[in-house]
């Protein structure tokens, strides 16, 4: 599953980040494999989304979020 499918209040861990230059930018912003994520806000019209990482909060578009593969933590 990918980041766009994460629901409110659910925690997940990033398993893989796809997409060449986009991946590099995501890494630099702290979105990288092994990091825990949580969906925190959804902007008006459902896009972009704001996610919580362990130490920061970042927002990104659904299209970019679909490149981030995740696994739910129970």
């Amino acid at each position: 599953m990918n980041l766009t499918q994460l629901g409110y209040g659910k925690k997940a861990v990033i398993t893989k980040v796809n997409g060449q230059i986009l991946a590099l930018k995501l890494f630099e912003m702290g979105i990288l494999p092994g990091e825990e994520v949580e969906l925190e806000n959804v902007a008006p019209f459902g896009d972009p989304i704001a996610i919580n990482l362990s130490e920061s909060k970042v927002c990104l578009r659904m299209q970019d979020a679909s490149c981030v593969e995740i696994k739910l933590i129970d």
Binding site: I21, L22, K25, L26, M29, I31, P48, A50, S56, K57, V58, C59, L60, R61, Q63, D64
Partner: peptide, 8 residues
């Protein structure tokens, strides 16, 4: 390609 990643 355009992307939008912004720290809050």
């Amino acid at each position: 390609k355009t992307y939008f990643i912004l720290e809050l």
